[in-house]
Structures are given as C-alpha cells and as structure tokens.
Write a protein that binds this DNA or RNA. Structure first.
Lengths: 333, 333
DNA sequence: AACCTTATACTCAATACCAGTATATGGTCC
DNA sequence: GGACCATATACTGGTATTGAGTATAAGGTT
C-alpha cells in the first residue's frame, strides 16, 4: 500500500457495483438522544439501560444524517429536533466479534416522550452513569470519599516519565483540585482518567468485553456509576461534554424545552445539563440581553408563588446567534 | 477531543476476515494537513492542487487515528504534531461512481517540509481556494465587486418562504453586512452560501462530477477561488473553520511554529490562520498573561530592526489550558 | 396576616478588553 | 555620525463584561 488513492477522478466515469473486497467494513450508527424532564437530564437507553440505541447504517439512506433521523424516529416514535455528529471510531475488534465495524455516533436533542415499547427503550438520568458530574447540590461527596482516594493512590504509583502530563496534575485539572475551579466541560477527560485508573467497570473487563453479562452488573466498583456495554459510556461522555460546551454559544437548549416556559424553567434546564447552579439575576440578564426569548403575554401560577411570565423562543435569531461568545453565569454558592 | 479513543478498550482477540455482506462499504481517510510558512497558511494537496490527500482505511491499523498518522507520515515524511477528527460523510454517490464510500476527514497540523516528490504533493495557500477569507489587508475587493452583487441578485430571486432564515439575512450574517462584524469562523457557512447561490464551480458541475476534467478548469466563475474535486473544497472549509475556532481556546498554534520564535512571528502565524490582523500590544499581553511561552534568553537580528527576543512554547501548560476562554485581540484597523 | 415564590430594579467592584501614546534599543542606509 | 526603521517595553484611559449582592413589589397559599 502506501500510494495515494486516486480519489474519485479515475473511476468517475464508470459506475461499478460495489465489490466485496478485503477492505470493506460495516457501519453502525449510535445515538446519544438527550432530553430534560423535571430538572433531570436524560438519555435514551435500551437493553435494560445498559446500551445506547444503535443500528446498522443502511444503504437506502440519502445521507448519514437522514439515516439517523429516520432510524431514531422508527425506534422511539419521536423525531429529534436537533442532530449533530459526535465522533467516528473504527477500532479493530471494537465489537468483540473479531469483525471490523465503523461506528458513527450522533447527539440528538428532543423532549422526552414515552418510548414505543417494542424496543424496551427507556429514559434514564445521565448522572446514573456519571454520578460525579452533578454538582448542583454541591460537590458530590463520593468524589471525596470514593474517587479521590483511589485516584491519589493511582497517581502515587510509579510511572515512566513521558511527555504526557503528570498524573497528579491531570487529577487536579479535571477534578478542580489545588485551587483550580471545577470545569463542567471536561466530562470525557474525567471519564478517561477514571478509566485509566481502573475505577471504571468497563476497564476491569479488560480485553474481553464479551465476558460482561448483560443486565447482571458485578458490584466490583461501587459508586463509580452504572456501566454500559462496550464503549457506550465513553460515547455518552462525549455527548454530554459536547452538549455542555454547545449550550454556551448556540441556543440549542430550546430544543429541550416545551413551546412556552418560564425563565426559571429554562434556568433549571441549563443547570441540569451543566450540572451546576446558575446565578439567577445574571442568568436572566444574559437571556434577555441576547433577545433569545419573547413574552407570550400569559403567566402560569404553577409553582405556588407569584405567577411567572411565560416565554417563547424566538426562532428568528437562531441563525444570528451564530457565535454569541456566551459564558454561563455560574454561581459559587 | 484529540485524545478520544487513544486508549483502546479492546484490541486483542482473534481477528476474523470480514465477511462481505450487502451492507458493507469502503472507508476512506481524507486529510486537511495545515502548515504556516512565511505568513501563509498552507494545505497539502495532490493531483495538481485539485485534491486533498486521501486513501483507503486499512484494516491493519489499530485505530482510525493511528491509521491516519501512519499514512500521513508515509506520504509526506513528516509526522503531524496534532491530529483531530473533522467529520464523516457517507452520502450516496458522493464519489459519483455509484459506490458507497464513507469518508472520514481529519485535520492535522505540521510544519511545512518539502513533500516527498514521488506523489506530486505540494503545499498551497488556502486563500488560493478561498480568496474571500483573507482580510489581513482589509476586506478583499472581490467581495464587493464579484461576490456581493451576485449574492444580492440571488437573494432577490423569489423563494418559497420556509423555516430557513431569509437569504438576505444569511448574506448579512456571513459576510458581515448591515452593521454586523465580520466573523472569521463562518468559513463553512460562507462556502455553503456561495455554493447554493451557484457561485462555486463545484456546484455548477452539479450531479455529474465526471464532467470536470482534471487540470483544465473552466473559467466560468472567475474570482471565486480554485475548485477542487468532489467535495474536497468543502472539507477544506470545514478544517479551516475548525482551526480558526480552535486557536481561540487551545494552544494549537504552537504545532505550526518552529521550536523557537519571536512574538511577532507568533502573531503573524495566528493572523495568517484567522485572516485578520491583531492588535500587537494586546496580543502580547494575552500571550504573556497566559504564560504560554518562556524566553530562551537569545535574540534574533532577523528582520532588520531591533533584535527580537526568542521564545519557546511551554509544553507543560498544554493540559492546563484545557479551556482558556480566549478571544483573540482583533484590531479594527 | 404571615409566608412563599417570583419579578424587577438597582448597585458595586473587579476584570477583561480595545486602543492609543511614549520611549528605549539595536541595526541599516546615506 | 545621524536619519530612519522595526521592534520591544511601559503605561494610560475608556468601555464592556462579569460576578455578586440588596431592595422592593406582586400574586398566591396556609
């Protein structure tokens, strides 16, 4: 090998039926479908909550995006309002079957609806899989009591010095130690750190992923979140990280909201995604100054207080807010 | 995102020859390899500058990332310092051959070196393909004289009103009209707009890519940049957009710099990428306050002025600067 | 009436950011 | 040597953004 593949041009004029060759592979679609229900960020799962929905990419579809949309709709009965590609991987034996599979993962945003039962799909809070990521009620105590002691031990173990940053420094950065602030976007980095440190169930399975029986989860590592099959939990981490970053500069939150909502509901939704509390006044200032919403004129007497005004997303500004450079007003308390 | 899947979950067990089935497809790798030489942002091209380097993904590789690295190194003799996945396309007939090909595109950063000649690869300024993207010497006159008149005509044409934002508004946003500021990150959006408006050579070819003869470029649309085969120019636009966004929050510029450099050289490099001039004093303050560089103690009497101090990138902080939230100090003049 | 929740209006301080001026330093050209 | 050039360094002012807090009004519940 080692020659440039003459892309396209050479064979452009003569259509050839696909010939099975040694280098042909199968393609899979994997979806991280997210919704927020009653201040809870949820993800659609199958197989008794142990897997993300996935399926083969079919040649019948016009494009990847179209294929995913059609397929998600068939699976769940709900069309995702927003779809974005996450990552593509093609590691050998990823599937454990000795076969080569390319997996293309997607992030989709919807509102939670009762999933059509035929596929035993169900919604589940994503903090079920990543309990260390929810800082809305303060730093979860399991970080101090469970994770950090083990990470500390791992970081203290001898390692060959390389170009990679020091283990202690990585712990400090990703978990906000040593005067550093917690950064909610580092979901994937934290997962990979825990994985390397052997604190993640899936890592213990090691090189034989087939050995984990479905549904039956050994309790070897209590408190480090619910495992998933293969690398689905890593894909979920990627999706969460992407979404947490995205809500800061594009108004995608509204895909997760009902048609009309109060500003507090909107805040609670963002807080659910970010896993952190916001400063209320500053959050409102931010939303209003960006002119992302408009009043409907109605109010709701929902939460047993002064009725809150109802708002509606101004879809016109979606294109304008191409880059808003928005930081979220995170509160320390 | 660059570290995704570097740690293989499951790599060892018995490799089985893939069985050809109806849903099997071929996978391609396409690389946007970028370098900056003498204030010029360049991309590696092949086939008389009409294509990005690409090649089949080989089953021999451990992972996609590894496959791309090995392959780029073999082709060009230089290992990319930084590699990141861009996007995966799998549109039917993308190749025009009636064949199904999944293309996984990557962005790689290096320093320019004489490409190994055997494959007729050559470096080319990316503004050769996107002349409207270089605003370092002010807004290019071709925007006013060539693009905007035609875009105006296109926007005035009747269109069925849908949910999509108004054509005029899209032009205003992407090209910074009507009081809006130019946003250098909207490379892809601008390309797609021009494509839809029929101002891009590749769009004129329409659905029969075989009709464009190699090397011979019809001069139907003068001044709208050099075309490439298939959708390579779109992929390049994706890479440029990603890089322009990335330099603002991760210190990837240094992958494009020599070991030691002056602050002005660094500034010129960033300016080349962003296609805009920076405010010198503020740029220096930004670099220094982030402690990204350190003095080597030496100076260079290069550019016929007072010798400039030489600096070196502090690799230790690479991990720390996970998210710096940095805006570049763009100057209005 | 006491209390809860939300809405609205300000204030205040600390930065961050944009832009400009002024001066020092080493080299080149005449 | 002196004019000139390009760079480096230092300092200043104005404005916008950000984080956080106080105070008050309004509708509903117990």
């Amino acid at each position: 090998m080692g020659t440039f593949h003459e892309t396209g041009i050479a064979e452009a004029s003569t259509p050839v039926a696909p010939v099975a060759s040694k280098n042909m592979i199968a393609a899979d679609l994997i979806a991280v479908l997210a919704a927020v229900t009653s201040s809870d960020p949820r993800v659609l799962t199958i197989q008794d909550r142990s897997a993300l929905p996935s399926g083969p990419f079919e040649l019948a579809h016009r494009s990847l995006q179209a294929g995913l949309r059609a397929w998600v709709e068939r699976q769940t009965g709900l069309p995702p309002g927003y779809v974005e590609q996450l990552y593509t991987f093609a590691d050998r034996d990823r599937g454990g079957a000795g076969q080569y599979v390319i997996s293309i993962s997607y992030l989709g945003l919807t509102r939670e609806q009762p999933a059509s039962g035929e596929h035993e799909a169900s919604w589940r809070s994503w903090y079920y899989y990543f309990p260390w990521e929810d800082h809305r009620a303060g730093t979860p105590s399991m970080i101090e009591t469970v994770l950090l002691p083990k990470l500390e031990a791992w970081a203290s173990a001898p390692q060959h010095p390389g170009l990679r940053p020091d283990r202690r420094q990585r712990v400090a950065i990703t978990f906000g130690r040593g005067g550093r602030a917690w950064n909610e976007e580092l979901v994937l980095q934290r997962y990979e750190l825990l994985y390397e440190a052997g604190l993640i169930q899936e890592a213990v399975r090691g090189s034989s992923p087939g050995t984990m029986r479905q549904g039956v989860v050994p309790g070897a590592l209590p408190g480090t979140g619910q495992p998933m099959i293969l690398d689905h939990r890593r894909i979920l981490a990627t999706g969460i990280a992407r979404l947490r970053a995205k809500i800061k500069y594009r108004p995608v939150v509204f895909e997760l909201m009902p048609e009309t909502f109060t500003l507090l509901q909107l805040q609670r939704c963002v807080e659910a995604l970010a896993g952190r509390l916001m400063h209320k006044q500053n959050f409102r200032r931010l939303i209003e100054q960006q002119e992302l919403v408009e009043e409907t004129g109605e109010t709701t007497p929902d939460t047993g207080g002064r009725p809150a005004k109802l708002f509606r997303f101004r879809r016109e500004v979606f294109a304008q807010r191409a880059i808003a450079g928005t930081k979220l007003p995170i509160s320390r308390a």
